[in-house]
């Protein structure tokens, strides 16, 4: 049986580590390579780098970060943020990224998912979606809407419908990020995660809101997620990756416990 995964997300801006609260007020919290190695040695199952660099002339810094991390971290490495073309995806793969996350650019041009999955294999393409709660309507029957550009721009697109379309277009995995929960440490959006995980046949990584070990357990059971993404709760030293895994293991979940 596959183990449930604990995934850590590192937001990187201009080559430095940042963590956002509700996608604003980013604070610099250290060197991404050092942090990645630390989590790796502490039993992390998968690492996600999200490039939140604002200016396009600094984009290549991310390739250097990925290359440096890939030389020291021997678990799957997933990279997202600003990927607009197959060339972007291929560059990151050559730098050492296993999986490529597409987000806003795929909403603007959904064919990007098909193109990237054809180029690098569908198991390596992750559709990352930022979602907010809205009143259910004809346009958003699920009551969840896709937002883009780091949560700033609503799209009018229904989140469940977009998840299903992403799967059909060849995404191999979904990251479902609640921007309502992101940075709050109040827990994942369980209803959102469960809604999408039950509807698709590809793995779902729950994201946004983790603050306590119980939150991970909840989203991996009630939320039906295959993996739980953590950020600030480990970045600021409140919890260790190994401690979270130990807790989940003690709760009876299948977790990788030797590394």
């Amino acid at each position: 049986m596959l183990s449930k995964r604990v995934v850590a997300c590192l937001d990187v801006r201009d080559g430095h580590l940042a963590k956002s609260v509700k996608f604003v007020n980013t604070q610099n919290i250290g060197d991404p390579v050092e942090k990645a190695r630390e989590y790796y040695l502490d039993g992390l199952d998968e690492l996600v780098f999200y490039d939140i660099t604002a200016s396009s002339d600094k984009r290549n810094i991310m390739l250097d970060v990925v290359e440096a991390v890939a030389a020291q971290v021997f678990i799957p490495l997933s990279v997202g943020g600003g990927i607009r073309s197959v060339a972007d995806a291929t560059d990151l793969r050559l730098a050492g990224a296993e999986k490529i996350n597409v987000n806003s650019a795929a909403v603007a041009r959904p064919d990007l998912i098909n193109e990237c999955s054809a180029a690098v294999g569908d198991q390596n393409i992750v559709l990352s979606m930022d979602v907010r709660r809205v009143a259910p309507s004809a346009a958003q029957p699920s009551g969840f809407e896709i937002v883009i550009n780091g949560g700033r721009t609503p799209t009018g697109r229904d989140a469940l419908e977009w998840a299903l379309e992403g799967e059909k277009r060849g995404a191999g995995e979904l990251v479902v990020n609640s921007i309502d929960a992101d940075g709050t440490r109040d827990g994942y959006d369980i209803a959102l995660t469960a809604l999408i995980a039950a509807a698709v046949r590809i793995p779902v990584i729950a994201s946004g809101g983790a603050g306590l070990p119980e939150h991970l357990h909840e989203v991996l059971t009630d939320g039906k997620a295959d993996a739980a993404l953590v950020a600030s709760m480990v970045h600021y030293g409140d919890y260790r990756v190994s401690g979270l895994k130990q807790y989940l293991h003690e709760q009876g979940l299948k977790i990788r416990m030797s590394w």
């Binding site: 049986m1 596959l2 199952d45 198991q123 995995e173 590809i202 793995p203 295959d226 993996a227 990788r256």
Partner: peptide
Amino acid sequence: LKIPHMGWN
């Protein structure tokens, strides 16, 4: 159970 079998086992 999904195909591909992807993850840690």
